[in-house]
Design a protein around this nucleic acid. Structure first.
Lengths: 225, 225
DNA sequence: CCTCCGATCTGGACAGCGTTTAGATAGCTC
DNA sequence: GAGCTATCTAAACGCTGTCCAGATCGGAGG
């Protein structure tokens, strides 16, 4: 945690070697390890993401990471945290770029699912860590720039929740839905359907269109007919 | 696959030992291995579910399973298949026991989520195997007694899909939603909310109530206001 | 400037894992 | 009873996560 400018200075002052890469004791390893982890995740998939492989990729011994993370899990959690931050950014971007408040909620959902699909291994780690270590709260905070805006987007879209609890439930429902679609959209058996609808995003939008996020008022309305 | 009545006969004809357990060469190991797997899953969690542990639990050498499954994955897949079958049963039961067709869809969702919550380790394996090995189609068929009824339940509830594709999308949406809730309902941060609503099932029903599964017609209706 | 301290990293070790191989064993068929 | 084949064991391989003793090095105190 105390390794920002200080270690970078250390790194810089060492010798005339052209690469700033392998500086001193190491430099700031924790960051390098997380980066190495992501590299492996993208190139070799989540099953290849072993502590030893990460250390190898970072050019250190298998025991080195233990001076920065108490666990393999803690390392993966750090990788996951980066993912949650990026997911939050993607959501925030989707909201500001939405054509109108009315479609912002859908666009957020699409962006969420797209992120999960473009970083499947990362998303898997993100969720696995959240479940195993119950670190969801902290991670959700990391992505709060994005996820925290969902409630506002829902309100801006014209939903009329009957209470704060109602709004909270709407938010949870939306989140669950996005997660469910994100995890299932890759199934092979949907291949034909995707093609028929003109691509994966079209498929995602079609499914999303069939899941209404309902406030209490809208629900009452529907039930009434 | 050729081990049904035949092996049971072998098992039966052997000696006066009171337990039918440890019969001959082994008996029918594949079944015993799957059972051992489930036992470990329930008592020690999914991380303890190693091939060697399963073999140990079944009382055979670590190499024995390879005569019945080509892989660790194939063994886990067999465990998962059992899970899908049971999930199918649970869904079918929920449908027939529903007070009316109108609430059957919700009851199916509740049953799905309850199953996942009561067998978290099993459900995890089920999904992991479905994703990794793309064996979802076969598994879905195993549960078809239940899952196949979802479309009928939706229609019986009075939904008016505009086309076969519309109905299919409704079904997928429902499935994604159930999966999403099933995986997220255990998060610690929802603890307070669950208590406030009077228990986990009440929480699940509340979230489900906020996710409307919409047919094309209902969707148009909502949009219209 | 030198010395010492504490953080950082290495090499080696341990148990456990999935998987393969060669060889023992036991039921089935003739 | 002999031979065949399916089944199981023992041992080994390379991999994993984790811990330990000792080497290495940057920075603080004299």
């Amino acid at each position: 945690m105390a390794d920002d400018a200080t270690t970078i200075q250390k790194t810089a002052k060492r010798g005339p070697s052209p690469e700033p890469a392998k500086p001193y004791h190491h430099g700031d390893l924790s960051r390098a390890l997380v980066a190495a982890g992501r590299r492996i995740l993208e190139s070799e998939g989540p099953d290849a993401l072993s502590l030893r492989a990460v250390a190898r990729e970072a050019g250190v011994s298998p025991a080195a990471p233990y001076h920065h993370f108490k666990d393999k899990g803690e390392l993966l959690d750090a990788v996951a945290a980066e993912g949650w931050r990026e997911l939050g950014d993607a959501i925030a971007r989707a909201r500001t770029e939405a054509a109108s408040p009315a479609v912002a909620v859908t666009e957020i959902g699409v962006a969420y699912i797209r992120f999960a699909r473009e970083n499947p291994a990362l998303y898997r780690i993100m969720y696995r860590m959240a479940c195993d270590r119950n670190t969801m709260p902290e991670h959700a905070k990391k992505a709060e720039g994005g996820i925290g805006q969902v409630a506002e987007a829902i309100l801006a879209a014209g939903a009329q929740p009957t209470s704060a609890l109602d709004l909270q439930l709407i938010q949870i429902a939306a989140w669950c839905t996005a997660h469910g679609i994100a995890e299932m959209v890759g199934f092979k058996e949907f291949e034909d359907l995707k093609e028929e609808l003109g691509g994966e995003e079209a498929f995602v939008r079609a499914v999303l269109a069939h899941v209404g996020i309902l406030s209490g008022t809208a629900r009452a309305m529907l039930q009434h007919t």
